[in-house]
Design a protein around this nucleic acid. Structure first.
Lengths: 242, 242
DNA sequence: TCCGGTCTGTACGTTACCGCACATAAGCCG
DNA sequence: CGGCTTATGTGCGGTAACGTACAGACCGGA
């Protein structure tokens, strides 16, 4: 698995029993995920589900006054479109590409066929959804109790876990939209991290220099989400071995 | 359905196809839900699932320093123990009785048998879980963007929707724990509502006098959660007709 | 090379909430 | 009635984040 852009780089597709994967493979369509693209609109229909491989997608709630808040972030660990198999068909959230890259998509009907007929897909998707629930719950906790500094650390680490490199393309303005805070607040928090030598950034490009340092500063919320994800969906064994 | 304490008063049990309900009925065990009782501990095993009928249960995250925040609230509309059928077996949250009453419980194994064999139970529970996800997501948004005043309104209305009367037994101290704010903050917010003639409270007993008034003051978060719940799980028709 | 847009840094007054301390009030029970 | 416990009200300084305004820095295109 040296190619970072094969469907198997998505943890869910990779964890699927071989027979089920083979059935789906011909129907997986590789798609471009440009920064800022809206994959689903709030309340919109879900014709496809998306399995990111090198991209990251944010689930956002956009308020009536236009302000926003990130509910959860999905990358190669997951799937966009859980409302499809959960039965609701839509969600009151928007899904936006937060980090450009690629994903593989599948027609909703095909996924549903697999979901209804085969145990492997059903249990895998439900376990992932539970991990997603944990992430949302912890976002709520973090929004209530932790400082912007801590939330920025959490956000950086969650994004980092879903990317192949230690660099992400993201302006402070966009981070502020995700966290639901002022842009200046992000500037200040990011400044502290840069002075501490943990990150380097310039004009929308952030490089993480000292990941352990970030983990020291982050609040418990990150660790709770990480531990629960690992418990529910062990990372691919190939990646562990390497 | 004059008796408020039959299993059918729980919306999920009520929505189940008759044959599936009949199968489960002999195994439903009526249990007391006293105020403050911990139904599940964070990370604990789920031997039973609970269907509240006259009680309300809060899903709480308790932080390392002891502070807490409510993630979601479950009453006659739902079930406690989604981690069981989602596949994780546990969750990093505590479930605490927020309003005393009764519930019907079922052995986890029995529920799983039904869940794996019959479509009705599966789809019903997944749709409910999606509604729960919406509630959690909106809690995150509300914690970020709305004032204590608005959050109190949201909390009161969400609780009210899950109770038969317009009165709830709950000290300001406990509400503060749920919202993750100071007790004094609740005192102040509740004082405003009382002066406005919307509620009356004294020593742990809150009476809602003007529900439409509350709905005027509440933030959009409540309406989003309500609309999505109604969409995913239409309230029992008997109740609509009455 | 200069211009214009975008990204980042900084400053200032304002506000909401916090932490703490303590005052009042309401019910419980001897 | 009196004394205890618990619930609620209030005040005050501190702080984190907000809204606003504007200055510098960087980059790409004309």
């Amino acid at each position: 698995m040296t190619d970072p852009d094969t469907p198997k780089n998505n943890h869910l597709l990779n964890a699927l029993p071989e027979a089920e994967y083979e059935r789906l493979f011909p129907h997986l369509e590789r798609v471009d995920m440009p920064l800022g693209e809206v994959i689903y609109e709030s309340g919109g229909e879900l014709r496809y589900v998306y399995f990111p491989v090198t991209s990251i997608v944010s689930l956002l709630y956009v308020m009536e006054n236009g302000a926003s808040a990130e509910i959860a972030v999905v990358g190669k660990d997951g799937i966009i479109g859980v409302a499809l198999f959960m039965g609701g068909g839509s969600m009151p959230n928007r899904a936006v590409v937060q980090s450009a890259g690629h994903a593989y998509r599948l027609r909703g009907q095909l996924l549903m066929h697999e979901f209804n007929r085969y145990e492997g897909m059903l249990h895998l998707l439900l376990r992932y959804t539970q991990a997603l629930i944990t992430q949302m719950a912890q976002t709520a906790v973090c929004n209530r109790h932790h400082s912007v500094d801590q939330q920025l650390c959490r956000w950086l680490l969650l994004s980092l876990d879903r990317l192949p490199s230690n660099e992400l393309t993201m302006t402070q303005e966009l981070i502020a939209n995700m966290l639901g805070v002022r842009r200046e607040g992000v500037t200040e928090a990011a400044g502290k991290l840069q002075h501490a030598g943990l990150i380097h950034y310039s004009r929308g490009r952030i490089t993480v220099l000292d990941r352990p340092g970030l983990e020291e500063r982050v609040c418990e919320c990150y660790h709770v989400v990480k531990a629960e994800s690992d418990r529910l969906l062990p990372p691919p064994v190939e990646l562990i071995a390497l």
